[in-house]
Amino acid sequence: MTSINVRVDGMSYSDDVEPRTLLVHYLRETLGKVGTVVGCDTSNCGACTVHLDGESVKSCTVFAVQADGCEVTTIEGVSSSDGTDGALHPVQKAFHEMHGLQCGFCTPGMIMASIDLLKENPSPSETEIREGIEGNLCRCTGYQNIVRAVQQAAGEMSGSPAGADTLGAQA
């Protein structure tokens, strides 16, 4: 067992973990942060994406011991602490507004990846968004509404009107 100290979603934790414990298993099983999920074994799907010291990482491909002394943000920590609707992160809100999710399993990872992308590139083109979330697989949406959601969030976060096209060809 190895002792670690981490801050997760604004709370400090000290725990003894087996070195082989993956960060995602620590989050889910030790801390009960089940909003972050596991979708594959090979770091392809991105469902487990969290922020480690402010950068997106796949928490299934980081050992919990490697997060010692670090700050972790999960999907459960991106909105304001009371979790009320009005306090959603603009990216969360945009996923809802633009129907950027169906089953929702990839959604936490997709949102965390999108927030990270927008931090580096506040007004990405459609191609930049598609490439920026290439590490996250979604089986439901065909990605188009996810792209729209990221565009919408980019618009809102930069204070300009939504960069997205109007909602859906059929809406």
Partner: peptide
Amino acid sequence: DARLITGR
């Protein structure tokens, strides 16, 4: 969506 986008 409410529960799915917040991880709840």
